[in-house]
Amino acid sequence: MRKSLYILIGIIVLLGALIAWFSRGGSDTVYKEAPVSKQSAAYEPEVLWPKSDEDKKIAGEASGVAVSSKGDIYYLHRGSSEYGGESLIKEPALIVIDGDTKKVKARWGKNIFASPHGLEIDHEDNVWITDIIQNKVYKFTADGRLQATFGDDYPFYMEPALRIRNVLHNFPTGITKYTFARPTDVTVMNDGSFVVSDGYRNRRIVKFGANGQFLWEKNNLGDRPGEFNLPHGISHDQKGNLYVADRNNARIQVFSQDGEFLNEWGQQELGRPFGVEVGDNGNVYVADGGNALYPKGGIGSHQILVVNQSGKIINRFGSWGSKDGELKIPHDIAVNQEGDIFVAELENHRLQMYKEK
């Protein structure tokens, strides 16, 4: 009897030690006091899509926005689905708007995506989209023909193992370098290599060659330099330096094209970065999506920021609301050669343009 008791106590102690070991590390979500909202005299707002009643019926959660070399605006939304939806979206998820006329010129993407998230257009105008349910990165031509798919399929145990790791941060899953766990965004270099922010269940940015071969990754959960807590958006500048919207850490991190940590921007006025884009002028454009998706901390700031290469904020504007110029969870951001800013608003289900005056 006593021997059995000792064995039971030993098992309990061992389980406790294992749970403590697997739970070590981690990173708490950072909350900031929301800065006072501002309106900008430099930009004129306009809703680009949806405009018609028919389009409003199919418009879903705004996910991504990008601009092609011709100036056309590509807008990604989830139609009748939602974040984490598992059924294929029956509406055209990709809306293409003519850069000159601002009229819809194409729609594609029916029955392809389950929960599309990140959107990128490379220098050859190929369209890259991440899907957080299918755990894939897709590469399409400008008119929607699939060229390549990246990301290994899940083995049968992977999904429950990742769910356990959400709680026990160091629980072993056996996930490979080629397997994504809800990839949030992608940025593509001129040589065809690409970097993925693999953020909702992983905690990494990972670079691949043009043919999909693994090159390097930064893969640590935490809030120290080079660590991540939900890398949500990613972009690069002309030198190849990478800018990562480290969402739960409420900061932008900057890395070299080889993954070397260079800098971080976490000032209060920056809020909570969801999306990031580097413009042709070298400025960094940030979509601050606030705290509306978080269980505490209030609504937070919902704004657009323009930041220079040194991390100095040179313009910021926006406030919570649904009127033209107002924002509800700006999820992604893009900018054209003229300096006009395009914002995909998650909760307002729309694409908004801020035209530079």
Rank of each mutant, 00 (worst) to 15 (best):
A106G: 03
I19R: 01
I329S: 10
R165P: 04
I7M: 11
I89Y: 00
A106Q: 13
D340F: 05
R247M: 10
F214C: 05
I129Q: 04
G26R: 08
F171P: 00
K207S: 08
L119N: 02
A181F: 07
G212N: 06
L76G: 08
I205P: 02
I133N: 13
Y285K: 02
R2I: 13
Y43K: 01
N249T: 05
Q352R: 01
F228I: 09
V335Y: 08
M1Q: 09
D72M: 09
G275E: 07
S235K: 01
R2V: 13
A344W: 03
Y178Q: 15
L262F: 05
V188S: 12
G144S: 12
Q352N: 02
F156V: 10
K207T: 02
Q268I: 11
G240C: 13
G339Y: 06
A181N: 12
E54A: 15
I121C: 06
E82I: 01
N281C: 04
V36R: 12
Y138N: 01
I7K: 10
Q257L: 01
V47E: 03
Q147P: 00
W49Y: 13
L293P: 00
G240F: 11
G212W: 08
R163Q: 14
D237I: 09
I73E: 06
H232F: 14
Y74G: 05
G321M: 13
I129C: 06
E227I: 02
Y75M: 08
E44N: 12
P45M: 01
L18S: 04
G311L: 10
D131R: 12
G339T: 03
I97C: 03
N220C: 03
S322I: 04
D185Q: 10
F140T: 02
S301P: 01
